[in-house]
Simulated scan of single mutants.
Amino acid sequence: MTELTEPRPAAAQPSPDWPGTDGAGVTDPVVAHALARLEALPQVPVAEHETVYNELHDELLAALNSEPADSGHGSSDPTDGAA
C-alpha cells in the first residue's frame, strides 16, 4: 500500500495566455497608460492584486472626472450662450 501514501506530482495546469493591451483599440493616452500597468500583473504576487486593481480604479476614475485637455469648447457650462 505504499503507492497510496507516496505523494503524487501535481498535474500541470495550463495557463491561459495573458491578454495584451496592444490591440485593445484604446485611443485615450491616460487610459492606455493605466491599462499598460496590467501587463505586469502576472508577475505581481496574488496578495498584492487588490492593491493594483484599486490603484487602477482610482487612476481611471480620476481620468473620467478630469476635464479633457482638448475639448474644443470655450466653456464647460452647457447653458453658456443659450438664450
Results as ranks from 00 to 15, higher is better:
Thr2Met: 05
Thr2His: 05
Glu3Ile: 12
Glu3Trp: 09
Leu4Ala: 13
Thr5Asn: 07
Glu6Cys: 05
Glu6Asn: 11
Pro7Met: 10
Pro7Trp: 04
Pro9Asp: 08
Pro14Ser: 06
Ser15Lys: 07
Pro16Val: 06
Pro16Phe: 04
Asp17Asn: 04
Asp17Ser: 12
Trp18Glu: 09
Gly20Trp: 01
Gly20Tyr: 01
Thr21Ala: 10
Asp22Leu: 05
Gly25Lys: 11
Gly25Trp: 08
Gly25Glu: 11
Val26Met: 07
Asp28Cys: 05
Pro29Gln: 09
Val30Lys: 06
Val30Ile: 07
Ala32Phe: 02
His33Ser: 14
Ala34Phe: 00
Ala34Glu: 04
Ala34Lys: 00
Leu35Phe: 04
Ala36Thr: 08
Ala36Asp: 14
Arg37Asn: 12
Arg37Ile: 01
Glu39Lys: 08
Ala40Tyr: 00
Leu41Phe: 05
Leu41Val: 15
Pro42Lys: 01
Gln43Pro: 00
Val44Cys: 05
Val46Phe: 13
Glu48Val: 03
Glu48Tyr: 05
Glu50Thr: 11
Thr51Val: 15
Val52Asp: 01
Val52Ser: 02
Tyr53His: 08
Tyr53Pro: 00
Asn54Lys: 13
Leu56Gly: 10
His57Glu: 09
His57Pro: 00
His57Val: 06
Asp58Thr: 10
Glu59Gly: 01
Ala62Gln: 10
Ala62Trp: 07
Ala63Asp: 11
Ala63Met: 10
Ser66Trp: 02
Glu67Thr: 15
Glu67Tyr: 09
Pro68Lys: 08
Ala69Glu: 15
Asp70Ala: 14
Asp70Glu: 14
Ser71Ile: 06
Gly72Lys: 09
Gly72Ile: 10
Gly72Pro: 02
His73Thr: 12
His73Asp: 07
Ser76Gly: 09
Asp77Leu: 12
Asp77Trp: 12
Pro78His: 05
Gly81Leu: 08
Ala82His: 08
Ala82Asn: 04
Ala82Phe: 03
